[in-house]
Every structure is written in structure tokens, then in C-alpha cells.
Amino acid sequence: MIDEDGYFGERVAEQYDQSSSPLFQNDVIESTVSVLTELANGGRALELGVGTGRIALPLARRGVPVHGIELSRAMVARMRAKPGGDAVAVSIGDFATTTVDTKADGAFSLAYLVYNTIMNLTSQKAQVACFRNVAEHLEPGGCFVVEVMVPELRKLPAGQNIVPFHTSPTRWAYSVYDVTTQAMTCHYIEVSDEGRGEHREVPFRYVWPAELDLMARLAGLRLRDRWEGWTRKPFAEDSAQHVSVWEKPIS
């Protein structure tokens, strides 16, 4: 259900960190933070969609000053309740358009979007605006990093538009694709111990690597690196995701 916190209100926030997803494994977080620390290069970092601080908090513990942009106050409240949660400044709003004052502390050397968060912007216009917004916040030589899935259209059977991605006795999840608009809606169904079923859906817009490169170019950024993941394994035709790094030219 959508409210002032978007699709990530209190009910989602209270369960978010309980996920069994590999994203919350220590080695995944460590490899992500290590790459981001290197790219920050001693400067400040801007996280778009900072959430409950899965990445921002360990990055701040590495000595990188982090400022987050987040629409969901419920998610931010969860981060604030964690040790060190007050170390990350947060601006509440849509990360495609929300700006951070850089006059006092200077521009950012790094901005980043992790775990498919770019797809929470459900139109191409908003995704383009996000790149331009980031470029305005970066110092010359600064980097913008995006971690996002490669669209799974090859998994679509002929004549169908649904890809399931989780099944269990009490939980089912699947994505519905509209290949004409690049819209993608994730549906989550969960059955409680009492046998009551609940349904939640979240809209996304899937985006191709080459399309992101064009958005970056429109914002004055240029591709620096693209890997399959945070271990920097080379991106290949069978890669399910990518971590891409664009750089703001110095001159």
C-alpha cells in the first residue's frame, strides 16, 4: 500500500532487515563497502535511497561521510535506531529531484544507488532526471555507481509476461512485465499462520545497460567501469546484474 512513505512504509520497514536475502550477508556488504570506500577516495558519499542504512552505516564506519536521500521516513527511523544511525545525514524526498546543499561541505566525490533502486523510478523521464541530479552534486572527477539487474526478458515464455522469483509453502513472488513500456510490477503474496493471505505490489521500470549509458551521457558523465558485481568480475553476456561506474569529467 502506498502512502507518504511510498511503497516502503512502516510495515515494510519493520521487516526489511529481517530478509534472508544474500544482500544482508556480511561478505556481500563488505565487498560493496570496500569498492565504495575506494571510489569515494577520501571524499563524501551520497546514497540515493539510503533505506535502513544497510550500506550507509558500514560505509560511515569506514570513515566516509555519508549523506542519504530517502522518501520513506519509516525506513530512516529504522536506521536511526541502529548503532551509529545518527552519523548519516538524511534529506527526505524523491532522489530524482531532491537536492542537498553542497555550499557548506562541498560537492560529493561519490554517489551511489544499490540493489535495483534505480528501478524504483518508474519512468524514463525520472531516471534521466536522477542522473542529472547526481551530476549536479558530484565534484569533477567524482563517480556515480549503480547496481542493477539485467532485465530478465529471456526468462519470459513465448506469449507470457510473468516471471516467478520466489516460491515457498507460505510465500510467493513474481514479476509482471510490460515490454512495450519497460514497466515491471513485483507482486508478493504471503499466507499467515492463521491461513490469511496478503498481497502487496511494487512498480518498477527495468532499464538496459546501454540505456543507462545514454542517460549518463545526457548528464555529462562517462562510463568508467562495468562489472558483474562488487567482486569486479567482468560483465558478460550471461551476467544477471551489473555494477556500473560513471565519472564526471575533470575538465
Rank of each mutant, 00 (worst) to 15 (best):
N120C: 15
E211I: 00
L223P: 02
V179M: 13
Y177D: 06
V207T: 14
C186G: 08
A216F: 08
P209Y: 14
V134P: 04
M149I: 03
V191E: 08
H166Y: 13
S192M: 05
A129R: 15
V191D: 01
P209F: 15
P157Q: 10
S123Y: 05
R132Y: 00
A216E: 02
H137V: 05
N161D: 13
R232N: 04
L223N: 00
N120I: 00
V191M: 07
E211Y: 05
D193P: 06
N116L: 11
Y206R: 08
G159Y: 01
A219P: 07
T185Y: 09
R200T: 08
D178Q: 04
S175E: 15
V134H: 03
E152L: 13
E147T: 02
Y112I: 04
R217C: 14
V128L: 15
V163Y: 02
G197E: 15
A126D: 13
A129F: 10
I189C: 12
V128A: 15
L113I: 15
V146N: 00
D225R: 08
R171D: 01
P169Q: 09
A210Q: 08
E152V: 02
Y188T: 04
P209R: 11
A216Y: 04
E152F: 13
W172G: 15
A219K: 01
F165W: 11
D213L: 10
G142I: 10
H187A: 02
T181V: 12
V150S: 12
A183F: 04
R196Q: 06
V114H: 03
R205I: 06
A216I: 01
S123D: 00
E211A: 03
V145P: 03
A111M: 12
V191T: 13
C143A: 09
H199P: 02
R205H: 10
A173G: 05
Y206M: 11
V134L: 03
V114G: 04
A173K: 09
S123A: 06
V150Q: 11
E190Y: 07
D225A: 05
C186I: 10
Q124K: 09
Y115F: 15
F204S: 04
T181D: 06
E152I: 01
W230S: 09
D225T: 00
A111P: 03
L113S: 15
S168L: 03
V150A: 11
E228M: 05
V202T: 14
R205V: 06
W172F: 07
